[in-house]
Amino acid sequence: MGTLLLLLLLPHPGALADADFVARTCNNTAHPDACRSLLGSDPRSPNATTVLALANIGLDAAGGNARDSAGTMHELSDGKYAGTTEGDALLQCAQVYGNAVEDLDGAREPLNSGAYGDASLLVSGAEDAGGACERAFADRGVGSVVSDVDQRMAEQCGVAWDLIDLLDV
């Protein structure tokens, strides 16, 4: 009975292998720390057994971030920054991030059908949302109030792109 209880308390070897798979996969990307952080925050990652599954998780994370960011920017433009130059830039950013959501959602089909180059192009376009948003502020001569959001967008899209790139060999 004590042995059975001890066996139940030990980590399952399959779970360790899955965590190792995520770590090994991330180590093959251009941004291993960001990859481990992004995938580590998703409860599906330990159960993933293919790079394609991890790429879909990365795409989900980037898409969710873009969707949330677009909403936040729209709220800020109507709220705290309503009627200001920053508010105008935020409206433009919300549009850019809305386009990024469409690109990331659109990348799902080519990713899962093996058209990795097409999926990569869409993710790359979405990754540019942060830079376009920063330019919206710079073009108006004001400092960005969402630099951290723009940086996170670029990082998450970069991880999704890296994972897709691993498939395109």
Rank of each mutant, 00 (worst) to 15 (best):
D162M: 06
L9A: 15
A55Y: 02
T85S: 13
L167Y: 06
S77H: 07
S69F: 04
R44L: 13
D78P: 00
A154Q: 03
S77C: 04
I57C: 09
S77W: 10
N65H: 15
Y97R: 01
A136Y: 04
V96K: 01
A100H: 01
L5G: 00
L10A: 15
W161E: 12
A138V: 15
D118L: 13
R24V: 03
S113E: 14
N56M: 08
G64M: 12
D33F: 03
A70T: 03
G125A: 06
N112W: 01
E127H: 06
D168W: 10
E127G: 11
A136M: 02
E134P: 00
D165T: 13
I164Y: 10
N28K: 12
S147V: 05
E102L: 12
A48R: 05
H31F: 06
L52Y: 08
T29M: 09
H74P: 00
R152E: 12
L39H: 08
P13V: 02
Q95G: 07
S147N: 03
L90C: 02
Y81D: 09
A100P: 07
C26Q: 05
G141L: 04
R152L: 13
A119T: 09
D148Q: 11
H12L: 08
R44S: 13
N56C: 13
N47C: 00
L122P: 13
E155T: 11
L122T: 06
T85M: 11
M73G: 05
E127R: 11
V101K: 02
G158M: 01
D18N: 10
A94Y: 00
G106T: 09
D33S: 09
A70C: 03
L9M: 15
S69M: 08
L111S: 11
V149R: 03
V51P: 12
N28R: 15
A160R: 02
T50L: 13
L10D: 02
H74V: 00
R24Q: 13
A23V: 14
V149Q: 08
D168N: 15
H74T: 05
P13Y: 04
R36E: 05
T49I: 09
D42K: 07
T29D: 06
D168A: 14
D128W: 01
G14T: 01
A136W: 02
A132W: 02
E155I: 07
V22R: 03
A23K: 14
R67D: 10
N99L: 03
L8D: 10
A82E: 12
I57A: 06
E127L: 14
S37N: 05
A30N: 07
E102F: 04
V149N: 11
A107C: 12
R67S: 13
D168M: 09
A61N: 09
E109S: 14
P110L: 14
T3Y: 02
P110Y: 08
C26Y: 04
D168K: 12
A82L: 15
L166H: 09
C26N: 05
T49R: 05
